[in-house]
């Protein structure tokens, strides 16, 4: 039995994309009225919802408050129906905790936390459908939600995954490509400055190949930025029309 051919000789991937192409991205801001900020994103079949509360007073133990900046609290969960086989626990497992931590690191780097000392910002992200690149979708949704909440940030945080197959770097991996077991890299980028908010990879990849993969992920993240920027401008335009009337 021949395995799946991830990249054909003609340069097409399993789903018909070329190596550097993203999946179709659709996003909306302000999907919930109750929360301070919210956003919904679809990257291909990966769908994520982000909700932001804050900045507000520290909830629970006051000892957690930071004297010089705001506390960023991130929680990640994924719906039981998000994967092919039904999940047992929607949140609280190891993978969710890790993802929460990564999100926190990412947003601590992007949000201007020193503007809100001794306060807390909550970011809740839920994955409704997982088809690869969940981290990237979460970051992109959360960026929009944080902006919707009006919390000052250094820049957009745009994330994208990248993989490596047969000497070619593939951007924005789908579930099929992730499941094939090659190396996989997740990158969160501040596009204006080109600074990296988070870079994560836990497979073996030779150092010579790292650069092209990183380059592919960064280029894809910039493409994501163009799209998110368009979404934000569209949202602001709509909002100002409503306000103006």
């Amino acid at each position: 039995m021949a395995g799946l051919e991830l990249l054909s000789d003609q340069g097409y991937r399993v789903d018909g994309r070329r190596a550097g192409e993203l999946r179709k991205i659709q996003a909306r801001m302000g999907v919930f009225a109750q929360a301070d900020g919210s956003a919904y994103i679809e990257q291909g079949n990966t769908k994520a919802l982000a909700v932001v509360y804050g900045p507000h007073e520290i909830r629970g133990s006051r000892a957690r408050a930071l004297p010089d900046r705001a506390l960023v609290n991130c929680q990640y969960s994924s719906a039981t129906f998000s994967t092919g086989e039904r999940k047992r626990r929607p949140h609280g497992d190891r993978k969710s905790c890790e993802m929460g931590l990564q999100l926190r690191q990412t947003f601590e780097a992007a949000i201007l936390t020193q503007l809100h000392p001794r306060s807390q910002i909550d970011i809740y992200v839920q994955v409704l459908q997982a088809d690869g690149g969940t981290y990237a979708a979460c970051v992109n949704a959360a960026t929009l939600a944080v902006m919707d909440a009006g919390i000052p940030m250094r820049d957009f945080v745009c994330a994208c995954s990248a993989g490596f197959v047969d000497g070619t770097a593939l951007a924005d991996l789908s579930h099929v490509e992730e499941a094939a077991g090659g190396p996989q890299l997740a990158l969160a980028l501040l596009p204006a400055s080109g600074q990296i908010a988070l870079l994560e990879m836990d497979a073996r990849l030779h150092e010579d190949h790292l650069e092209p993969v990183l380059e592919a992920a960064a280029r894809a993240a910039r493409d994501v930025h163009t799209l998110l920027d368009r979404v934000v401008r569209q949202h602001v335009r709509e909002a100002s029309v409503l306000l103006g009337d």
Binding site: V14, D15, G16, G44, G84, S174, V176
Partner: peptide, 25 residues
């Protein structure tokens, strides 16, 4: 142009719905 088609597949064991994107160019 990117458009999507949904393909369903079942695998041994239980029935599983697999959705894959298929871009037409």
């Amino acid at each position: 142009l990117k458009s999507k088609t949904f393909l369903k597949k079942t695998r041994a064991g239980g029935v599983m719905k697999i959705v894959r994107e298929h871009y037409l160019r």
